[in-house]
Computed example of a mutant assay.
Amino acid sequence: MTRNLHGNLDSDGFCLLHCSSKEPVDLAQDALHFVLNLNGMGVWMSQQLRINLVASTLAVFHYASNDQLIASRIPSEDQDSYVILSVTKPWIKKSFGSRAEALHPSVKSIIFDSQNISGTIGKVRSMSLREKEIANEFVSPPVPSAAQAFWYPAKIFEILTLHLFAPPTLNTAEPFCSQIKRQQSDRIDKAINWLNEHLDESLNLQAIAAHAGCAPHYLSRQFKKHTGMTLKQKHRELRIDHAAQLLLDGDFNVTEAALEVGYSSLSHFSKAFQEVKGERPSEFLQS
């Protein structure tokens, strides 16, 4: 099932969709697409692109008019749920052209250069807490229906500014409560980044806390409070998500994928894989 949340690509220049089925969605050519994959797995392939998405990951890419994109969703027991924000190049020029120098270099190349190529903006990566919150809010807006015509454009601009521009500098006039919330979110994001960069290593709470800039016990408590998972559970989830993507790419067998993400025991890897994905690696490959 695909539900239009807001906008029309032809008339408005942007369109926001929520998809909750295994049926792939055809994406418009010569547009920039933001895919926030909340649950399930999907693949987009063309001569110029290969994008594999697992749960809680995102991708930002341009689909050129001279390319042919093949989309598919991977069968699994999980209920698919992903949000696609599509925007046209003329709309981006109109909305952000006055700030063109501050745009990401890849965005400037796609929007303002004459080359017509498909390409990603950055890499496929895990969603931050804020990105996941926005994606869930897109699906279930926290405002009355009468206010959604104003709320959706504001949120669309928020997700665009998170990806099209460099991170904002610290505002010293920021209210104290907002600073605390932002610092907590930043620490959790830094912890997740550390976990992503050390998938093949054992969990090191002291190193993670040092990287996040806070005490270990404080980080553990805040991480569980804001994510609903312990650091150990998140580390396992990220390991298995990455291993699943390696298997999906077809360049690694089960043993190689297990070793790549730090599992020396194949039985431990299979058990963890089944706990996270609901099926054994062999069943995942067959599906």
Rank of each mutant, 00 (worst) to 15 (best):
A258T: 11
I110F: 11
Q68L: 07
V261A: 11
S265N: 08
S220L: 06
N193W: 04
Y263K: 03
N171L: 10
S202D: 13
V139I: 14
R99V: 08
G40I: 12
D80H: 09
V276D: 01
M45Q: 11
P167F: 02
V276I: 13
V54S: 13
V261S: 12
I74M: 05
I74A: 02
W91S: 10
A173Q: 02
L53T: 06
D30K: 07
I180C: 06
A207S: 15
P141S: 05
I117K: 06
Y218G: 03
P90Q: 02
L266S: 03
P216L: 08
E158D: 14
K234C: 12
D251T: 13
G40R: 05
V143E: 10
A215F: 04
H268S: 13
L162S: 09
P167H: 08
I117G: 02
Q68W: 00
S76N: 08
F61V: 07
S287Q: 14
L36E: 07
S95A: 08
Q47F: 09
F284L: 06
S185C: 01
D80K: 04
K22A: 12
I192N: 00
P75K: 04
E237N: 06
L85W: 13
M1L: 12
A31F: 10
K234G: 04
A173I: 10
K232N: 12
A102F: 10
T172M: 06
E77S: 14
S46G: 08
L32G: 01
I70V: 09
K108S: 08
S81D: 15
A244C: 07
H18P: 11
L129F: 03
Q79D: 10
Q184T: 12
H268C: 06
S65K: 13
Q68R: 02
V261N: 11
L247V: 01
A207N: 15
S282I: 15
D241K: 02
H242Q: 12
A154D: 14
L219Q: 07
S56Y: 09
I188A: 05
I192G: 01
L49N: 05
D251L: 07
T255R: 08
A135H: 01
S56H: 03
S118Q: 09
F34S: 08
F138D: 02
I111M: 09
M45E: 13
A257M: 05
Q245E: 14
A258H: 09
D200Y: 09
T161R: 15
A100D: 02
P168N: 15
I188D: 04
S106P: 00
S20C: 14
P75S: 05
F252R: 10
V143N: 05
F284D: 06
A244Q: 13
L9A: 04
A64C: 00
L195D: 07
K232G: 10
Q233R: 08
N193M: 00
H18V: 15
E101P: 01
I156G: 01
I192L: 00
A209F: 02
N204F: 11
V139Q: 03
L69Q: 00
A100H: 03
I51P: 14
R99G: 00
L162I: 14
G40T: 07
C15G: 14
I74R: 04
R182L: 06
Q179W: 00
G42E: 05
D26A: 12
S185F: 01
N52Q: 13
T172N: 01
E260W: 02
G278M: 14
E23T: 15
S145V: 12
N66I: 05
P216W: 03
D12W: 10
I134F: 08
G122S: 11
